[in-house]
């Protein structure tokens, strides 16, 4: 799952990127408001982590501009401003959640998962499709109750497909959702992951729509 992190402090940015990376997120990190707007316009992010005290363009401005452009990506504000008035201003400007520094990395990851889940229109924390159950919090997958060992990428790919059953995602779209900037994507990486998933979950689990992409058939 690909996230945009907007944070000007190098140490905090690095920490969040590495920490969320360990949780299976692909994190793109920008350090000012203007770069955040560019990135938001160019890539489909599952969620945005936004600091408010940003150089060049303030976080609130970025937030309002994104909402004004009808960009409904979930946005989690991360800031040191903890006054109630600040939180209200942030939420009213279009933020979906508000986390005050310093925060716990696990809580941050949990909040991001919750935001993504709500954005996908689910209330249940696990994703189900037939016999396949996916738990984004533990990154565990089961098939008919039996655990299935998936790599981080395989899990992310399956998650992307199961989030919107019936929707066909092209290889490029899957790559965009799986890989952050600067991550090397092998020319047939997606095909390799699909192949492995079919091997582990059964050949019928993922359907190939020739010339378009991949999908998990709606039940």
């Amino acid at each position: 799952m690909r996230l945009l992190l907007v944070e000007d402090d190098p140490m905090i940015g690095e920490g969040i990127r590495d920490g969320l990376g360990q949780e299976g997120f692909a994190v793109d990190w920008v350090r000012d408001g203007a770069a955040a707007e560019t990135a938001l316009g160019a890539e489909p992010y599952a969620a945005v982590l936004l600091d408010l005290g940003l150089p060049r363009k303030g976080g609130l401005e970025v937030l309002r501009a994104a909402r004004a452009q009808r960009n409904d990506v979930p946005i989690l504000v991360i800031t040191a401003r903890d006054a109630v008035a600040d939180r209200i201003r942030g939420l009213d400007a279009g933020a979906d959640d508000y986390l005050v520094k310093p925060f716990d990395l696990d809580e941050l990851a949990a909040r991001v998962r919750a935001l993504v889940r709500r954005a996908e229109g689910r209330a249940e924390p696990v994703l189900r499709h037939g016999a396949i159950v996916l738990n984004p919090a533990t990154r565990a997958a089961t098939l008919g109750g039996r655990p299935v060992a998936l790599s981080a990428r395989e899990f992310a790919l399956l998650h992307a497909l199961m989030a919107r059953p019936g929707m066909v995602l092209s290889r490029a779209q899957l790559e965009e959702r799986l890989y952050g900037w600067g991550e090397e994507v092998g020319s047939n990486a997606v095909e390799v992951h699909i192949h492995n998933l079919r091997r582990k979950l059964g050949a019928g689990a993922i359907r190939n729509v020739r010339g378009v992409g991949y999908t998990i058939a709606a039940e």
């Binding site: 402090d9 905090i12 969040i16 920490g19 520094k101 990395l105």
Partner: peptide, 8 residues
């Protein structure tokens, strides 16, 4: 800010 970085 530094405390957040430390916690992380």
């Amino acid at each position: 800010t530094p405390l957040t970085a430390l916690a992380l």
